[in-house]
Computed example of a mutant assay.
Amino acid sequence: MTKVSILMPVYNAERYLSEAINSILNQTFKDWELIIINDGSTDNSEKIINNYRDDRIYYIRNTENLKLIKTLNKGIDYCHGKYIARMDADDSCFPERLRYQVEFLDNNHDYMMCGTNAVVVDGHYNKTGKIRNLPDDNLLQVNLLFSPPFIHPSVMIRREVLRENRYDEDYKHVEDYELWCRIAKQGKVANLQKDLLAYRWHDTNISVLNNQVQEEMKDKIIREQLKMLDIEPTDEELYCHKITFRLYASGRKQNISIQQSEAVSAWFEKLLRQNKKIKKYNQDDLKAFLWARWAVLCISQKKYSKIFSPAFASYHPDVLTQLFKLFFFLKNK
């Protein structure tokens, strides 16, 4: 059995496609197959793909444009590897990506998937930033209550897990976030703390072109996640839930009033009360996570004296240990 199947959908990707394919060919880990599905491209993508003569590359051509979700679900059936790695046609992998992810999943049988960190590059491969996500399952489970903590083209998933958990067409543009939430309910997840992907950010990214729809669908997922705590948030509560992840929306700082800060604190207290009853998350982990988000809010508003005195503060050693880990993570993010 092939160890890794790399699933790469392609649609009019001629500008970066060779670079993406070459980054797979240059992997230090060699036991892989690359499943390329051309979703009705009208540019030179097919010609570029056909120039490659590696027996590990399998080319499938959709007779019509099925769009991303149907193409991904179709591609899963062509994957025969023990693990399935996602890859986009405009990104590129660092040479050690597959090796590190295979080693992790081979050595951690209770984990269903793992992602990686990434370097953000522009259309000319200039480094413009970085993406850092939390590494550990316990905090990732909490993070999923607020936002997607994985880079889609960086993940590697056990084949049987992905075959039993297909992408849901009802969650267009956030199909990955919804999938991570489902998988995380069934087992452990992780992010490797290594830059193993060059993630290309440009004005044709799905998240750029479909920002409004994407945000509405994210809200739907968040509401579904909150139902697990037996909470149906009001619009104001949903705003409080999301604001610490949107303080610099579109690159512009969001100013928060004192009343809004108090509402955020009250909302975090509500989450903790409900979790204490339902026991969905480890209470200390949730408290530390919320405290770290509170700190982000305070720092953004220059209310530094409030960082260590939220109404929900706890000075239990387990909470403080996680809190300072999160502070260190945020500092280096």
Rank of each mutant, 00 (worst) to 15 (best):
M1S: 12
T2L: 11
K3C: 04
S5G: 09
L7M: 01
L7H: 05
Y11T: 02
E14P: 02
R15E: 14
E19N: 12
I21S: 03
I21F: 05
N22P: 07
T28F: 02
F29T: 01
F29C: 05
K30M: 05
K30F: 03
N38I: 13
T42K: 07
N50A: 13
R53G: 11
R53F: 14
D54Q: 07
D55H: 08
R56Q: 12
I57N: 03
I57E: 10
Y59V: 00
I60Q: 02
N62W: 07
L68R: 02
I69D: 06
K70P: 12
T71F: 00
N73Y: 06
K74Q: 08
D77K: 02
C79M: 03
Y83E: 01
D90G: 15
S92D: 01
P95E: 09
R97T: 07
R99A: 02
V102F: 00
M112C: 10
C114P: 00
N117C: 08
V121G: 06
D122V: 03
K127I: 12
K127F: 05
G129F: 15
K130M: 08
I131F: 02
I131V: 12
L134C: 03
D136W: 00
D137T: 05
D137L: 07
N143L: 04
L144N: 14
P148V: 15
S154H: 07
R158C: 00
E160H: 06
R166Q: 12
R166H: 10
D168P: 09
E169H: 10
D170M: 07
H173D: 08
V174I: 10
E175T: 14
R182H: 02
A184P: 02
G187C: 04
G187D: 04
A190L: 06
R200I: 11
R200A: 08
W201F: 11
H202M: 06
D203C: 13
N205V: 08
I206E: 14
S207K: 01
L209K: 15
E216V: 10
E216I: 12
K218V: 04
K218I: 12
K220V: 12
I221P: 10
I222Q: 03
Q225F: 01
E232D: 15
P233H: 13
P233W: 13
E237D: 15
H241V: 13
I243M: 02
F245D: 05
F245Y: 13
A249I: 00
S257L: 14
Q259C: 08
E262L: 11
L272R: 06
Q274L: 10
Y281S: 01
N282Q: 04
N282T: 09
Q283W: 04
Q283R: 02
Q283G: 13
D284K: 12
D284A: 14
R293Y: 13
A295D: 04
I299Y: 01
K302R: 11
K303T: 10
K306G: 14
S309L: 06
P317K: 06
P317M: 00
Q322A: 15
